[in-house]
């Protein structure tokens, strides 16, 4: 059950959650681009810590830490691979600065993961669906997206029920070689697929009965409007762009490395 709880979405209210998802997305893209442009540790650290107020304001620190932990494995891998590559290419010597560069590249990856996870952790699917509807994405896509979010937990629960039922009839899922184990899942998959097809037919019937496709000009119960918070975020985004551009143009070469400090 606990696995499926994770799939279900709940409405959460916080200043960050109620921001316009489109603006939040632009914010993420800006952070993304800046993280790609800079390769030095200090600006990347700044970018990393800049997300913290968002995380705290949205009160998603637990989930945020979990997503970072999820990225830790890949981050370690990137770090070691970089060290190894420099070690080999520089003729089997390692300088302190090589560590710093490997660290910076890893940090860049972490910042990318972090900013996207902040976006997805603080944007509820219905908000995202609404944003899709309001941009020029065809309505069918937005509908497919929200319907998927709606039915993924339902299907997951159903899969669990079918698994329990088949186990009760003596099916052993966890036994045998890999191939055998995959085959074991056939009696679970077939009823699941059959039921999913029936479900989709019923859904189609219900949609038809509620005037699906009546007009080309669909309207919407909600509309996204920019509020104070959104304007604040736009101001922040512009500020970030100006600072980043300024630093990039005038100081890019003179951004100090951490190793330089340590040698002082």
């Amino acid at each position: 059950m606990s696995v499926f709880e994770g799939l279900r979405f709940r409405k959460v209210y916080s200043p960050i959650h109620s921001l316009d998802p489109r603006i939040k997305f632009i914010y993420v893209i800006v952070i993304f681009v800046i993280a790609i442009i800079f390769w030095q540790v200090i600006p990347l650290l700044i970018l990393f810590f800049m997300q913290l107020p968002f995380v705290l304001l949205a009160r998603v620190q637990k989930q945020w830490l979990r997503s970072l932990r999820g990225a830790a494995f890949l981050a370690t891998f990137i770090f070691l691979l970089n060290i190894l590559a420099t070690y080999i290419s520089s003729g089997f010597v390692l300088l302190a600065f090589d560590f710093e560069r490997a660290f910076a590249l890893t940090l860049r990856f972490v910042v990318l993961v972090e900013s996207f996870s902040v976006f997805f952790l603080t944007t509820s699917p219905d908000h995202l669906g609404l944003a899709l509807e309001e941009t020029r994405v065809p309505y069918e896509f937005a509908f497919a997206f929200t319907t998927a979010v709606r039915f993924v937990p339902v299907l997951a629960e159903e899969a669990q029920t079918i698994m329990d039922a088949q186990k009760a009839r003596g099916l052993e899922l966890e036994k045998g070689s890999l191939l055998k184990r995959i085959r074991n899942y056939v009696p679970v998959l077939i009823p699941l697929i059959v039921s999913a097809i029936r479900r989709s037919l019923e859904l189609a019937e219900a949609m038809e009965s509620r005037a699906w496709g009546a007009t080309k000009k669909r309207t919407n119960l909600y509309s996204l409007r920019l509020h104070r918070g959104d304007f604040a975020l736009i101001a922040i985004i512009i500020g970030i762009i100006i600072v980043a551009a300024y630093v990039y143009i005038y100081f890019f070469a003179s951004i100090p490395a951490i190793t330089q400090f340590l040698q002082l």
Partner: peptide
């Protein structure tokens, strides 16, 4: 099929424009 109840209730009206 919607993610909130009122959105579901509105579905038909949205389709009708």
């Amino acid at each position: 099929f919607a993610l909130s109840i009122e959105k579901d209730v509105a579905f038909g009206l949205e389709n009708l424009g």
